[in-house]
Design a protein around this nucleic acid. Structure first.
Lengths: 147, 147
DNA sequence: CTAGGTGCTAGACCGAGGTCTAGGTCAACG
DNA sequence: CGTTGACCTAGACCTCGGTCTAGCACCTAG
């Protein structure tokens, strides 16, 4: 409530994470700065914490494992002097993202092809199933195939 | 080895899946056609099976859960008549993919910003850490702040 | 004073998706 | 003949990331 501090519930609402997950993240070392506590031990998140958490959410949403985020947080916590390593981490994740993008585009292409076939199939009542194995060239009855 | 059939090991190599995973997928019902067996009970995959599995790999890589692939496989297995449902599944996954793309681009943007800052930081030996909380405006010593 | 809401910790639990092991069959090779 | 290597099944095991519970501490309002 005090201007510079949010409760865990408020942060949960704000970030879309559950309070459980917020505590988990803290235990896992994802926070780049120790969370303050109020007089009775409750977490008080600063605006900066929330901002950092929002970044964590994006990292997670792009497939960065908790351990990596934790490592990054540690580097930030330790302060200046390790910028090169942070940069490496970021670049690696950037590459991971571009790979994911490629895979997604790949699958998108596949799907769009299939969707187009099915749409046409349904629209025209055609018979050729865009996704059926060819009927094996006569199971058991190999008789008179072209004769 | 016979032209129309691959062993599980060959399929593993071909698809990048492990033989364990191939068997798992089969148990989970991901295959759209029953895998043939040779005289001594070993799996014999047809070219079509392999093609289907390659699609499964793409689906997985784009986040489609096994259960959904299984459902789709079931529809294909059941043959014509359910094209509309297949189309629905595909469209839903298409949407999921575009959402993922958006999230990835979002994170990419974040990262590119950070990377740029760090690169500049490192190149110029600047002091402003692009990712450090502001030093709190005087911890404990709230004395003489403008007075 | 009591009740309701929110928070705390520690630790159990869960689902998804793989991975691996044990114990056995089979075919080919030397 | 024995050995090797690929395969089989059933089922245990593992990691990851999250969710939920128990049992307790606060605080505020009625």
């Amino acid at each position: 409530m005090a201007d510079g501090g949010l409760s865990i519930g408020q942060v949960a609402q704000h970030t879309g994470l559950s309070v459980h997950t917020l505590r988990l993240y803290e235990r896992a070392g994802l926070l780049a700065s120790e969370v303050r506590r109020d007089g009775s031990g409750r977490r008080v998140y600063s605006a900066w914490d929330v901002e950092w958490l929002a970044n964590c959410v994006k990292f997670r949403a792009s497939g960065m494992p908790l351990t990596t985020i934790s490592r990054l947080a540690q580097l930030v916590r330790e302060g200046s002097g390790n910028e090169a390593e942070r940069l490496t981490l970021l670049r690696e994740h950037r590459r991971s993202i571009t790979e994911q993008l490629m895979r997604l585009h790949d699958c998108l292409e596949l799907i769009d092809g299939k969707v187009a076939s099915y749409e046409q199939h349904l629209a025209t009542g055609a018979s050729g199933d865009p996704w059926q194995q060819q009927p094996p060239p006569s199971p058991t009855k190999h008789t008179r195939q072209l004769g």
